[in-house]
Design a protein around this nucleic acid. Structure first.
Lengths: 333, 333
DNA sequence: GTATATAATTTAAGCGCTTAAGCAATTTTT
DNA sequence: AAAAATTGCTTAAGCGCTTAAATTATATAC
C-alpha cells in the first residue's frame, strides 16, 4: 500500500507536509506543493479513507437509511440515489447504503451503525410516526435529513414533496382544460401522505367551487381490487367525474383499465393525471401526465442540506418543499 | 467515543483480550469472555470499523458499482440492492454504493476508490465490452463479481440470467398454450443481451419446428416509435403472429397498445409474455405474464459468491445462471 | 518433582493518517 | 537594529484497533 510515507520520501518532505498538501491547508509553499503533487501522481497514491477517519474522527461517509421494499411507487429509489450521488460526487463524501430489510429491526441496525461511528450523516427515508430511528440519530447526535415527513417532524431538516402545490397544480390543470368533476384515487400509503392529499384535494376543489361528491374522494383503497371496484362505481354513475387524479402508479393503471372497461375514452370522456411521474407513463395508452417529476431532486436537495449541516452543525434547520412540475402528456386535453 | 480501552478497564482485562473476544478468536476463557461481553453491553460499545480497517487491512465493505440511469428496465435496481443487502446483513460486511453517473468517467472514480482501498470487494453491474473497470479491479486485485456479462467474461465470477432457459420457457409456454406463431420484440439494450436473445429465440423456434418469418424477430428497435411501427406492421399482416415475447417493459406496454389499436384481444387473438417481471405487470390490462422473477436473486447470489471469494481468494471462479421462473398471469391462456 | 506442553492473558508495535506545538528562516513593524 | 509577526516546514503524539511475540498460569508427561 502506497502511503503518505512513500510520498514524503519521494518528495523529500515530512509526512505532515504531504498531509497538509492533500488537505489543501494553504500553508505549504507552491514549490513544495508541486513536488508533493508530482509524487502523488507518479506513485498513483490515494489517501486511505479509514486512516483519515481514525485520525480525524470524520468518516466522510453518509448513509441512506431506508427499507427498500416500500419504494415501489411514490418515489423511484433509483432516481433518488442518483440525485444524492450527483451531489456527493462533488464532495469528499461517499455513499453508504443501509438497506433495512426487516422493518421491525431496522432501528437496531441503525443504532449499531451510529454507535460504531460508521457515518457522519444520514439521509432518512420513509419516516414513520414516532420513528425510533430519529430518536437514535438525535441521541447519537448524528446529523440527518429526512426525505418525506410526518407532522411530528416540523422542526427538523427535511425535504418533502409540496403536496399542497401538487394537488393545486393537478386540480387547476384539469379545471383549466374544462374538466370540472374531478375525483381522486389512490391506495393507503405512507404515514400521513394519503391524509394530506385528501385534505388538500377537498380544499382546492371547494376553493375553486368545483362540483363535488364525497364518493369522489373517499378513503384510499386497501387493495387494488377495492380500488377497481370503487372506480367502477364512481365512473359508471350518471353524473360521474370527468377527470381522475391518480396518486400512485397502481391508481393510474387501474384508472386506465376501468376507463376501457366502461368505454370511456381518454382524454375525451375522462382525463387522467398522475402524481409522481414514472418513466412508464409515457408508454401507457394513452401516455399519462403527472405533476411531479423526478425523485432525483429530493435526493440531491437532501444531500445538499446534509453537507451544509456537516460543515456547520449549529446551522438552523431547513425545510424544503419540492415544487410540483407538470409533465404534460396526452391523458389530459 | 467508547473505545476498546473503556471495555478493557470495565472488564479488568487488557485491550488485546477485548479484541480477541470481539473477533471470536476462541482463545479467551469463558469467564473472561462473559465479563467482556457484559462490559460491551453495559457500555453500549460498538467497534469502530475504520479503526479495524486500519489495523487489519480489511475494510469489511463491499461496493456496488453501477451507472444507475441504465436500470430502468431489465433489472429492478431496488430489488437487486435488496438481494445484496439481505445477504450482507448476515455477514460482517457493509454496503457501499458507487453510483457512477457519468459513464465516461466512471472508471476513474473506481480507480481512485480501488487505490484508496475503500472496499474489499465489488459487485459490478452493467458490464460492457472491454470494460475498463474490470481491468482496474484486476490490476488492483480487488475481488469482484459481475451481474450480467459479455462473452469476454467467461472465466470470471458472474451471475447472469439464463437467457437460453428464459427464451425456452417463454417459447414453450406459448406453444403449449397453442400459440404457434411467435414474434419477439424489444429495444437495443445491454451489451450482447439483445444478440443472445435473438439467437436463442431463433434456435428454439426452429427446434420446435414452429412457423417463422424473419420479420418476427428483426433487430431490436432503436426507439419506442420504431418499435410501435414494427409491431403494427408485424401484427397487421394477414398471417400475423399470435403471440409476442416482449423482452422489456417498453415492449410489453407497446405491445398492449398496438394490440388495442388493431383490435386484437389479449389473450384470445394475441398472447403476450414479458421477460423480467415488473410489479406493474400485474396491474396492466390484462395482467401480463413474465419469465423472470426477481432481480433480488441475482443480487443475493452475487453477494454470496463475493463473500466466499473474500474468505478464500484462491477460490475457483464460479458462473451462475439464474433460472427463469414463470410468472403466469392473464396475458397467455 | 522436574520438564514440557497447553491455555490464558498481556505487552507492545504498528496500521496510515491528522494536527497541535515547535523551530527556523524570512519578512514586517517599530 | 532589535522585536515581533509571518511563513514554511518538521517533530511527535495519538486516533482505536489487530496481532505477533512474550509472559504467566495451569495441566500433563515422565
Amino acid at each position: 500500500m502506497t502511503s503518505i510515507y512513500d510520498i514524503a520520501k519521494a518528495a523529500g518532505t515530512s509526512i505532515a507536509t504531504v498531509s497538509y498538501v492533500i488537505n489543501k491547508s494553504g500553508r505549504v509553499s507552491p514549490e513544495t506543493t508541486a513536488r508533493v503533487e508530482k509524487a502523488i501522481r507518479d506513485l498513483k497514491y490515494e489517501p486511505k479513507s479509514f486512516a483519515r477517519a481514525l485520525a480525524s474522527g470524520q468518516t466522510f461517509t453518509i448513509s441512506i437509511v431506508s427499507p427498500l421494499t416500500v419504494y415501489k411507487n411514490q418515489i423511484s429509489f433509483t432516481q433518488l440515489i442518483n440525485g444524492v450521488g450527483e451531489v456527493l460526487e462533488k464532495s469528499d463524501y461517499r455513499l453508504f447504503m443501509h438497506p433495512t430489510l426487516d422493518r421491525a429491526n431496522s432501528w437496531l441496525e441503525l443504532e449499531a451503525a451510529a454507535r460504531g461511528h460508521q457515518m457522519d450523516g444520514v439521509i432518512l427515508l420513509h419516516v414513520q410516526l414516532q420513528d425510533k430511528r430519529i430518536e437514535i440519530l438525535k441521541k447519537e447526535s448524528i446529523p440527518f435529513v429526512l426525505i418525506g415527513r410526518t407532522e411530528e417532524n416540523e422542526g427538523l431538516d427535511y425535504v418533502d414533496a409540496d403536496i399542497h402545490g401538487a394537488v393545486r397544480l393537478a386540480v387547476d390543470h384539469l379545471a383549466e382544460h374544462g374538466y370540472q368533476k374531478i375525483c381522486m384515487v389512490g391506495e393507503k400509503g405512507n404515514a400521513g401522505v394519503s391524509y394530506r392529499l385528501i385534505e388538500q384535494f377537498k380544499k382546492r376543489i371547494s376553493e375553486k367551487n368545483l362540483p363535488f361528491q364525497p364518493a369522489w374522494c373517499s378513503n384510499m383503497a386497501e387493495s387494488s381490487e377495492e380500488m377497481i371496484s370503487d372506480l367502477v362505481e364512481i365512473l359508471s354513475g350518471s353524473d360521474h367525474p370527468t377527470a381522475v387524479f391518480a396518486v400512485s402508479d397502481i391508481a393510474v393503471l387501474n384508472t386506465l383499465k376501468v376507463a376501457r372497461q366502461l368505454h370511456l375514452q381518454i382524454p375525451r370522456d375522462l382525463a387522467v393525471i398522475g402524481y409522481a411521474d414514472n418513466y412508464i407513463y409515457q408508454y401507457l395508452d394513452p401516455p399519462v401526465s403527472a405533476v411531479f417529476n423526478g425523485a432525483g431532486e429530493l435526493g440531491s436537495i437532501a444531500a445538499q442540506i446534509l453537507l451544509k449541516k456537516l460543515l456547520d452543525p449549529e446551522r438552523q434547520t431547513e425545510q424544503i418543499l419540492v415544487s410540483p412540475e407538470l409533465v404534460s402528456r396526452q391523458s389530459v386535453a
